[in-house]
Nucleic acid binder design. Structure first.
Ligand SMILES: [Mn+2]
Ligand SMILES: [Mn+2]
Ligand SMILES: [Mn+2]
Ligand SMILES: [Mn+2]
Lengths: 222, 222
DNA sequence: GCCACGGTTTTGAGTCATCAAAATAATAAA
DNA sequence: TTTATTATTTTGATGACTCAAAACCGTGGC
């Protein structure tokens, strides 16, 4: 039985949720899953039990859920499609990086393998999507990069923006308008705990100050 | 309420069904609708009653169904998307014309207006899809052409293939391999009632014989 | 060690889309 | 006109997916 869009969305959310877990944690709590999918907690519980029944996840009541190898394979496939489609929409269709998420969210479930393969080919087997998120390989491997946030990277040292971990359109437009998209080189000049902000030097030595919250969503390579 | 994929498919099938009706007929019978959608007749009846309830169709029990202006607007929109997507997949993505139907069938329900507009723009506001089917304009107008089938067009006169009215992949590949795609110029040399076949002269004066059934699916302009 | 609270699960219900098969209506044949 | 055939509608049921709200569990505070 091929998985429904709903099942694919659950698996993808669990997959992404697992990467967000800190430390040795391995289980995604139901509350987090429910809010990631925008559904009621009870619905998540019911669905996850069904997913466990079909061998795609392991479910520990009151603890959370984890993907089985079978579930992980499916999840990586969906995430690969999502990110390839996003990149395609930006690179080939000329759409803005803040408006491709919703299209990708739907298309990831319906386009044929053949079309995905054509996109991948046209894009030259890309490794990262427009937001710097890694694109899983066809066999489910995720490129791992050692990145730091603007809150932890070295001061007064050129760093390259590599990834933006927030899909919010307004935030993405802000990033773009301040030339902070992946690929741009910047420096962190100062961090101020009290004012909860970070001072940056960007393109053309342009100075700017952003909040710590925003700074934590900009990942850079040194 | 935005229409579900199911509703969109029903409306599209009724829309296309109406164009296939001969004479002054105006109602699409339930059986035809059901088989076009590949569902049980009883399901069609139930759904159509719901569509009538929401003002998208007019339903006459035991006679059939017809689109209201509201329903026709939605149906034309879906058909426009379907055919634009098909053309996009062929022209831009380099897919074959016999493998784009299924992708379009799904994508028509999910891609954003913005993306459709980009496709339309990239393709130069096309009027016909890869099969020669007219693409409804944004306001729902369908280009009408006076076409004849290979069963009725004049003999020994150059005619141009304009449209192929069968989405079956094997048939489309046959058409392609014999250089009978829309745009090709051919001549009908002879029709034989007894053998139920038609003799053609195609590209490079290549002779071929095809069955009447197939001939009726090739529409030409004189 | 009890209790309150936040997170989780259960319960009961509803929507949408579907089918198989029985009942019925329209139509063609005898 | 009766009968047989075919198309259509009704009926009863199922499977996914969802919610609201009640019940429940586990843990940290006191
Ligand atoms: Mn999705
Ligand atoms: Mn992305
Ligand atoms: Mn469709
Ligand atoms: Mn077509």
């Amino acid at each position: 039985m091929l998985p429904s869009s709903t099942v694919e969305n659950y698996l993808k959310a669990i997959y992404v949720g697992e990467t967000h877990l800190v430390g040795g944690q391995k289980l995604v709590p139901m509350g987090q899953l429910a809010s990631a999918l925008g559904i009621a907690p009870g619905t998540a519980t019911t669905m996850v039990k069904a997913l466990a029944e079909s061998g795609l996840v392991t479910y520990e009541p009151y603890n959370g859920v984890r993907l089985t190898p079978a579930g992980e394979k499916l999840a990586a496939r969906v995430l690969r499609r999502h990110r390839l489609i996003e990149l395609f929409l930006v690179q080939v269709m000329g759409m803005n990086w803040d408006e491709v998420h919703e299209d990708a969210e739907q298309m990831e479930h319906v386009v044929s393998d053949r079309l995905i393969e054509r996109m991948d080919e046209m894009l030259g087997r890309p490794e990262f999507d427009p937001h710097g998120d890694p694109i899983p390989t066809p066999d489910g491997q995720l490129a791992h990069r050692a990145l730091e946030t603007l809150l932890t990277c070295p001061l007064n040292t050129p760093v390259t923006v590599a990834r933006v971990t927030d899909q919010d359109a307004a935030f993405l437009r802000f990033i773009e308008s301040h030339h902070l998209k992946p690929g741009e080189t910047i420096q962190v000049e100062e961090r101020d705990e009290a004012s909860d902000s970070v001072k940056l030097k960007g393109r053309d030595d342009q100075r700017m100050t952003i909040g710590a919250r925003a700074a934590s969503k900009l990942l850079v390579s040194t």
